[in-house]
Design a protein around this nucleic acid. Structure first.
Lengths: 198, 198, 198, 198
DNA sequence: AATGAATGAGGCTTCATTCAT
DNA sequence: CATGAATGAAGCCTCATTCAT
């Protein structure tokens, strides 16, 4: 189908995706294509040769990210300690973008067919991790995979509010949030968990 | 200096701030001045008579919000149950914008003198609440006011990722995060709390 | 509905429509908005205040033109000499744009609801003129209003091929084409007249 | 100088010219080189190997077309019936592009040396046809070769305005225009014929 | 010689901001 | 004071053209 890119084109594609991810992480989705191209050291037009649309570019990054998460989730699905596995998963998720956060993973491309599909797969992966952890009593009985899916980005986001945060600050907030998921000291939750799909 | 506005001007200012807050909540900071003006039922030029700059308008909203929070914090500072008081404070914070989140309270106007000043006051207010709660053992020993300041917006933000979330979903995530702040089942935190000022 | 424009806005609108008509006449529909704005002596943004879209601008011009033609057609519908009336109508049509031609009156906005509607009215107007002329024997029996509708732009278009044509050259080709519509020396036509609507 | 092309290059050139002619006929001169290349089944770069510029490509097509017309004109110059010969010539001209029209034969390349030269030769060819026809009384006394040169494209152009015209509709308008060139029922023309060269 | 990747100028459009009414 | 018209910078995207493979 997609025959291998020419060597230079492949290199540019990589540069572009990296630059775009960085710009989006630093400035949000309104980062301009021109800035992304400049950062990647390529021409503006080249961006559009690789991704016909800004949205396509964003979708490609999201897909990349989510695929990595799914893989990480699968690798952890059979780990000896389900609680540690879940926490490791959330760590991997947060590590992906130590700068700012990967919120746009949620915000963008609401409608995109491919994105929804891969998000569904990610949710299922997370469900499996959470179910196992819950069965073992590693997390409280009333949290679901959807909760983790939604909370996953919070550590980075929260840390991003601190003006000159040390690069690992998110680990602090991941720890706090994860403690909130533990059974010890859990108080009843006032709202039911949302459905997988809205 | 700032002599009282004429009656209609004061009314317009209120309409404008309300409309702007709603638009920003629904569409984010990139909501257009034209839409805000239309929503407020006033002319675009009038917006700029009240706020010379879009940033000024945003700052005004942030200031409004923060003042309310400071006041709420003060009111709760002497409450009988410090733990409940802190939780109530976080609830008030999250309630301010049940739609979307008030992240832009952090994101915007990083540099603004007035905003920093009022943020400092808010931090101090929160510090007081947290200190009291910590002293009573209502929250874990290793969390600070800054932590709460940063975590405060997370419940709304997290809930916002869910496509058609029920309007009170944020309460679920506030509960989880608050449980993470409790002493029961607290695990040591990998990173120290950030300074008050970066 | 459309309350009267402010004096300066109305003036700009006129300048803009005139400049646009000239540019389109000289360079075709691919004339750029920037050039049109410059020619009108207004800012590029002002063009979009008046017409949200380049297509809207084109449609406005077409509508203008066609309305004038319909009116002219109505005025001529009761003229004493139906043959002269039809010829006068075609003259008025060709005079509208002495430079180049008004072909884009046909080419543009195929789909636009308002444009189709007004075109239908124009066709009906022309039908009436042609029917009367035919009844009187002023034009050959086998031509229809649709023929005239289609031929109407040809004189200007043909004259436009001549590099430095005198401004009235189109009159020569209108005369020739009109002679082709007369009954004298008419030879049978190899193809039937097209339908009013495709 | 222009040594013969390699066999495959010659083949590509033919494919390219045909594809370009079709695209231009369907979409006008703003058809993109990329689409033309795709239609020809060759790479975009190859287009520029054959024609350094889009304008060069257009000129080549025009030259092609005009050469064919000149040849046809020569073949018809000695025909038994000069009136029928002229009409046949105009038919051949219109047939070249039954889709859309060959207006761009006039519109493009105004300045090109080679194009002007070949256009001059075409005009002379047409002059000869018209002169003979006029001498025989097959066309009116006051029309010239230049008139025919200019009118030649009108049938296709006129028919092109009709949305879903049958492919031979242009024959109808050629017939009408040709009738306008006949002596019977000719009325005096209001403008003199233009010079051969502007 | 052929290919298709890269480039950047230029086109349409949006929007914060200024200014005449 | 309020209004909405005008402006131009900036954004996304297209496309002729150049160039490395």
């Amino acid at each position: 189908m997609t025959r291998p890119l020419r060597a230079d084109a492949a290199r540019n594609r990589r540069l572009l995706l990296a630059a775009a991810a960085d710009e989006f992480a630093e400035r949000g989705l309104e980062a301009s294509i021109a800035d992304i191209a400049r950062r990647a050291g390529i021409g503006k037009g080249t961006v559009f040769r690789h991704f016909a649309t800004k949205e396509d570019l964003i979708a490609a990054i999201v897909l990349d990210r989510v695929e990595v998460l799914i893989e990480a989730g699968h690798d952890l699905a059979a780990a000896a300690d389900p609680g540690a596995a879940l926490r490791e998963f959330m760590t991997v998720a947060a590590e992906q973008r130590q700068q700012r956060d990967l919120s746009f993973l949620h915000e963008a491309n609401a409608g995109r067919e491919e994105v929804s599909r891969v998000q569904t797969r990610l949710r299922e992966t997370i469900d499996a991790l959470v179910d196992r952890a819950r069965d073992q009593g590693a997390v409280r009985a009333d949290v679901t995979g959807t909760d983790v899916f939604l909370l996953m980005c919070a550590p980075n986001h929260v840390a991003g509010y601190q003006p000159d945060a040390p690069p690992d600050l998110w680990r602090r907030y991941l720890a706090i949030i994860f403690d909130g998921l533990r059974p010890e000291g859990a108080h009843p939750l006032p709202q039911p968990a949302p459905d997988a799909r809205g």
